[in-house]
Design a protein around this nucleic acid. Sequence first.
DNA 1: TCTGGGGTCCTAGGACCC
DNA 2: TCTGGGGTCCTAGGACCC
Length: 423
Amino acid sequence: MGQVFALVDCNSFFCSCERLYRPDLHKRPIIVLSNNDGCAISLTKEAKALGLKMGAPYFRMKQLCEQHQVAVFSSNFSLYTDLSRRVMETIYELTPEIEIYSVDEAWSNLTGIASVDKHGRMLKETIELNTGIPVSVGIAPTKTLAKIANHIAKKSDRAGGVVSLMEKKYQDIALERVPVGNIWGIGRRNSLKLRLIGIKTAKDLRDYPNEKEIQKKFTKVGIMIKHELQGICCFPFNDKEAKKKKEILSSRTFGTPVYRKKDLQESVANYVSYASEKLRKQQSLCSIVEVFARTNPHKEEVQQYYAFNYHKALTATSDTRKLIKSAFCALEKLFKSGIEYKKAGVRLSNLTDREEVQLNIFEQMDSTKDDALMTVIDKINTIEGSRLIKSAACGVNNEAWAMLRSFKSPRYTTSWLELPTVK
DNA sequence: TCTGGGGTCCTAGGACCC
DNA sequence: TCTGGGGTCCTAGGACCC
């Protein structure tokens, strides 16, 4: 019995979230910008039709946006995360198994369901009715084919937002039209390499006779993608609980460049605070704290610098204060004065389960007192929001480097002060 | 003036052990 | 002073994803 995968993917997710509370923006072009209002990270089809591109810097699009009255938003992740949860909960209620793949995508396991097309349509309609977020559904015997089906569902007006590639004859037609670079798992570099050996479409790859060559040039991942296109499942459904992260990263581009070590330290202390909150949430400990800092690579006239360094602790911990100290050790090693820093970040790695921690004979594990303190701080910050309690190392106003967010919408669903009003 | 942030997986090569 | 091969673990870097 073959598998059936459905990929449910929200259309222009961040834009759709913004539109949900702004009915006046129906059919109007919308874009959502990355942190610091740097570049576009979500665009509605109306915005794409104007020639605006994903990933393009805002300052280059500004004029076009004003000219066509594009609605521009800074990113509002607490809103998106909350609406994502609602979408996922709806899918969860309607399908036997769900695997959340990203903030706006989930796999649903439709294996054994009699009429998968009908089920896909029902999924789409119910999600839109319950959450107001439009979605597309792609159905196929493997994840890679379901991705392609979803892509067609988004593009084609005739499909009505749901496409099934369960039948071989439809797979043939579809794969012929998909350039290799659009296949899930094949990026810019490998798509160039594939073209060099004459593989231009997904169908070319599926039917390429020399598997050894694929293995050699594109590793075993290349082989798995090829098999998936043939309908042989290599990326199975993963219905387990969301796995714990193996590393936790926190980084930001500064609103304005930073020169002083003190400002860099302050920002790094904040990143450690975010990351260690996540660390404690998934019940992990960490023993390697890596810090990196760099100049603006797009600004050619300044002296370029990129550096990273790490500090390895003898004993794994999740105590923000200890982790900040480690981060400062690493920062000390990489800091160079006279540099115009534009971005810094922190990576927590070598994560272990809290329960399985190895005691080092030279050092104490976090005491129950430290643990209790962190728990209380996390609790207060969850309730009060905006990190009411933080380490003094994080600084107070962060003026020197804080993010720019000129077009932020209210936190309609997660802040009592910003609820939408009905007139 | 202004170009995001957070992840995973794979491989090659070095270190080290027997 | 000379000699070999196999296995494992770790790390850095590349490629990709949303």
